[in-house]
Design a protein around this nucleic acid. Structure first.
Lengths: 146, 146
DNA sequence: TATTGTTATACTCTATAACTATA
DNA sequence: TATAGTTATAGAGTATAACAATA
């Protein structure tokens, strides 16, 4: 019996899939898809001046990002304007409605996470989450900040 | 600034992708693909009497499993025999060579994991991994054992 | 008739390559 | 000429449906 524990990769992938599934009903309630949410969260802290940077920060490539932006812009959750400094670039920014939605969405997802982890003792839970963030930086590199 | 930390889903997915990428060179060295490895690991602890159960345990569906089994059988790493008790079923079992390869592969992957986590203090690392296993069972349910 | 394994078809998602506009 | 954004095409990956063998 070699494996007292499972491979980290298998465990992380499995956990990722389970969390995406758990987020689905929350996102359904908000009427947005997962990648919509990812983009909205990435934009929450301020406008971005090139879509390429936004694509890198969200792990999509630029071509896959475009339909997402089209949909969100059509719903009035964000808007794109040409950058006056270089009109090839587009400044992407949340509308007030978009900012409101991402705040409400993330709060709902945090509540869902808390429910899932309710079985863990409080101190173990806190320690796990803080180490998890460090491990993520260690293994996957620091996240692109916009 | 709402997010002192990132959503768990985003973090797990990112970590999963990073670990899969980190495993790639190890698997290349062994001459197998990721799903080959997943199947070999699942079979390590004993034969399975229906491919449907193997598919469920590895997260593939039966149709996607078949080309994987074909390839591994062709390389002599496992074999399929009709179940005498119910000849519709196929018993899938590792060959000696397959068992050897999965043992060597997992050892190499563990060494890779240890290198990636070398930046963590030993006790924090141990605590994290043990809590991670509990969290995985909590969130994704106990894993199908063959 | 129902189920296992298999094969074939359709669909979705992703990646690559052209096209437009600005520089 | 080079780059940002966009659109169109091709490819890989996945899911659905039909088929053969056995029960």
């Amino acid at each position: 019996m070699t494996g007292q524990r499972h491979d980290l990769g298998a465990t992380f992938v499995r956990l990722g899939r389970a969390m995406v599934a758990a987020e689905q009903p929350v996102l359904d309630e908000l009427g947005i898809e997962m990648w919509d949410y990812v983009v909205l969260v990435a934009l929450r802290d301020g406008p971005v001046h090139t879509q390429a940077r936004l694509a890198a920060a969200t792990g999509r490539d630029t071509t896959r990002l475009i339909p997402i932006l089209d949909r969100l812009e059509g719903r009035g959750l964000l808007y794109r304007t040409p950058d006056p400094a270089d009109r090839r670039n587009r400044i992407v920014e949340l509308t007030a409605e978009g900012a409101e939605l991402v705040t409400a969405g993330q709060a709902a997802i945090r509540r869902m996470e808390a429910r899932l982890l309710a079985g863990l003792p409080e101190d173990e839970r806190a320690g796990f989450i803080s180490t998890l963030e460090r491990v993520a930086d260690l293994i996957a590199g620091p996240r692109d900040r916009l």
